[in-house]
Amino acid sequence: LPLEERVTHFRDMLLERGVSAFSTWEKELHKIVFDPRYLLLNSEERKQIFEQFVKTR
């Protein structure tokens, strides 16, 4: 999958899993780590997309 598509899937997962915009990566990790979409991005990309996600929520 192209990166753009993987990012979209990852963001959808964050929304569906009820990730809080007022929380930290560490506190929200347990909600998403077992979702197959979690593995679409490498660890650096995951954290970066998470940070963007919480800023725009």
Rank of each mutant, 00 (worst) to 15 (best):
E5W: 03
S23R: 01
K47W: 05
E4C: 07
E26P: 10
A21C: 11
L15S: 13
Q48R: 11
F34H: 14
A21R: 09
E44Q: 12
M13S: 02
M13C: 02
Q48T: 09
F22N: 15
E16N: 04
R17M: 10
E44A: 13
E4G: 04
M13N: 04
V19P: 14
E16Q: 14
H30I: 07
L40N: 13
G18T: 14
R6V: 03
K47A: 08
E5D: 08
P2W: 13
L29Q: 14
L41R: 04
V33L: 07
L3S: 03
R11P: 14
S43V: 09
L14T: 06
T24C: 14
L29C: 08
T56F: 09
R11F: 10
A21M: 03
D12G: 08
F53T: 00
H9S: 12
E51L: 06
T24E: 00
L15I: 09
F10L: 03
Y38P: 04
L15F: 09
E26R: 01
G18C: 03
E28A: 01
E51S: 10
K55S: 12
D12I: 11
W25K: 04
E5R: 13
T24H: 09
D35Y: 03
F53M: 00
Q48Y: 08
W25E: 03
G18H: 08
L14D: 07
R6Y: 10
T24I: 03
F53C: 01
Q48A: 12
A21I: 04
L29M: 15
F10W: 06
H30F: 00
I49D: 15
E45Q: 13
H30N: 06
E51G: 04
L14P: 10
Q52T: 09
S23T: 12
T8C: 08
E16Y: 01
L14S: 01
V7P: 08
K31V: 03
V54A: 07
I32M: 07
I49T: 14
G18M: 00
S20N: 15
L15W: 08
L41E: 02
I49K: 03
P2M: 11
E28C: 06
F10R: 03
Q52I: 05
R17E: 07
E28M: 00
P2Q: 15
E44R: 11
E5I: 12
F34P: 06
E16S: 02
G18S: 09
A21K: 10
I49H: 11
P2T: 15
L3M: 15
E5Q: 09
Y38E: 00
Q48H: 14
V54N: 06
R11I: 15
F50R: 03
R46L: 03
S43L: 12
N42E: 13
V19R: 00
L41T: 05
F10T: 03
L1G: 15
T56E: 15
K27Q: 14
Q52Y: 02
F53D: 00
L14H: 00
A21P: 12
V19K: 08
V33K: 13
S43W: 08
K31H: 04
L14N: 00
E45G: 07
E28G: 03
E16L: 00
W25D: 00
L14M: 12
M13P: 10
